[in-house]
Design a protein around this nucleic acid. Structure first.
Lengths: 120, 120
DNA sequence: TTTATATTTCTATAATACTTGAACTATGGA
DNA sequence: TCCATAGTTCAAGTATTATAGAAATATAAA
């Protein structure tokens, strides 16, 4: 991941509403959530929520799938994995802080759940 | 770490110049770097650089120590550790993605280098 | 077909953040 | 003391982002 791309992801998460939205979706798992539920939980007006959802979607941190009148939003775990890998890659004077196996174990765990979109 | 605080850190890193500055300092280790060196490497005018350095300092991601006419800036690894812990804490449907031991090993490693400011 | 619901897009406004020349402060050397 | 250097702060302009009411779209239910 390049610095510019990482900065984009970090900026997307660097807003209280968007970070809250993203965390709700991470907790919700592959089932995801509908905007109405998110808006209810966070007390956000629909247009404001829509604005943030489209921002998070644009940078690839979440994804929306249409289901009749609803749109099911869910977290893109692979993007988050890559971001965390980027953030830890140059830590501790060039040695990786977290062994690669940890990140890959995480991916492997999700792979069993049928949610593998990672290149790990 | 609370959401608001995490969002502040993420927003600080969510700018290409600041992310580059931070990564330079992470790579530089405890020795840190002087603004003149950073400005040279990244091609930033002094006031612009100063603006970003003070932003990163304010949120606690870096620290500046005066040394005669110079100011030695260095990364605050503990803050970054906490941020990464926050980002991974609700991952994978509530189970921590990365075993706690990994994060703590990292802290232990730095503790040996005399740079322990973490609560891990 | 009318109505209700979920969500988005449009629009305007408000707020915040970024950039950088110029001026300033602090320190060390001549 | 005078000058040079490192870095910051000031000030003003520019750009970007966030907010939310109103209008639009799409689907489903009555």
């Amino acid at each position: 991941m390049e610095t510019l791309n990482a900065a984009e992801l970090l900026a997307a998460l660097g807003h209280e509403s968007r970070l809250s939205i993203f965390r709700l979706l991470v907790e919700a798992g592959t089932e995801g959530l509908f905007p109405s539920v998110i808006g209810e939980k966070l007390g956000l007006p629909a247009p404001t929520l829509s604005f943030h959802l489209s921002h998070l979607t644009r940078v690839g941190l979440i994804r929306g799938q249409k289901e009749s009148r609803f749109i099911r939003y869910s977290a893109e775990y692979a993007t988050m994995d890559e971001l965390i890998a980027f953030l830890t890659s140059n830590c501790c004077q060039g040695e990786a802080c977290l062994p690669k196996t940890s990140a890959c174990d995480t991916v492997a765990k999700r792979r069993k759940l049928g949610d593998d979109t990672s290149s790990c």
